[in-house]
Design a protein around this nucleic acid. Structure first.
Lengths: 127, 127
DNA sequence: GCCTTAATGGTATATTATATCATTAAGGAA
DNA sequence: TTCCTTAATGATATAATATACCATTAAGGC
């Protein structure tokens, strides 16, 4: 028996899809907890991990901040505003050749890559 | 009076230079504490921050791990093994032009980028 | 319905880092 | 040299993020 479909796991996955904009584990917990108060924070973290392992979700690591989760598991790049901290998808093509550029370094096999850009979003530039 | 030269601050700066290989704050604390046991962990963190503010040190943020400090830092890319989960630095040049490639998309100002590669490390390939 | 074991929930703990605040001491001025 | 202002220290508390542990519950194959 490999993976079981629990109510809690379904809630967790649905929450990421509903919240849509790269929620943190804490965001997901708050959303799920509002519907199902008896859920444990540990369960949410655990299910987010499992759902990433099974490729139902994508984990986006953010430096100096909590990881974020994305229901769009197709490779794409992200942008984090240094001012407001908001993270969003960048609608630009995934550059497959970057993998080849760095393949084999130190004897490693490279499967994929993630790029996180940072800077200022349009809203924060106005301030 | 802007900044004072304390023994503790000198020790902190020297530690980063001696450790050389982008130590974490914890590495720096351990090194300094061995020489000067009464130093507070808070003081080390505070001095690392001050030394970054004054451009005597540079801070390197790492996905999902402690910040690292160096007196002559180059931006690093990182590699995560899908099998063992280990994250390590890739000793490859930072490609400044990637920032320009994506500058201005959606009206955003791009300052920097981080790349996280994933795949298989040499040890896990053997298994 | 039974049984195995994956999953849960509650608590404890780890890690990284900052906040607070009374005390100490750096370094310019008298 | 001594005095004075205030930056810096050290101890403790706290915040944020995340995992470890373990007794109990329940998913889903038989």
């Amino acid at each position: 028996m490999n993976q079981r479909n629990t109510f809690q796991r379904t809630l967790t996955l649905d929450a990421v899809q509903t919240l849509a904009n790269h929620p943190t584990a804490d965001d997901v917990y708050n959303f799920v907890h509002a519907k199902y108060p008896q859920i444990s924070r540990t369960t949410v973290y655990r299910n987010l991990n499992k759902l990433c392992d099974s490729n139902d979700l994508l984990r986006v690591k953010i430096f100096g901040a909590a990881d974020r989760f994305d229901h769009n598991i197709h490779s794409h790049y992200h942008f984090k505003c240094d001012e407001c901290g908001d993270v969003c998808d960048l609608d630009v093509p995934y550059i497959e050749s970057i993998n080849e550029m760095f393949a084999g370094i130190g004897g490693r096999i490279v499967n994929a890559h993630q790029i996180l850009f940072d800077g200022l979003c349009p809203e924060c530039q106005k301030k």
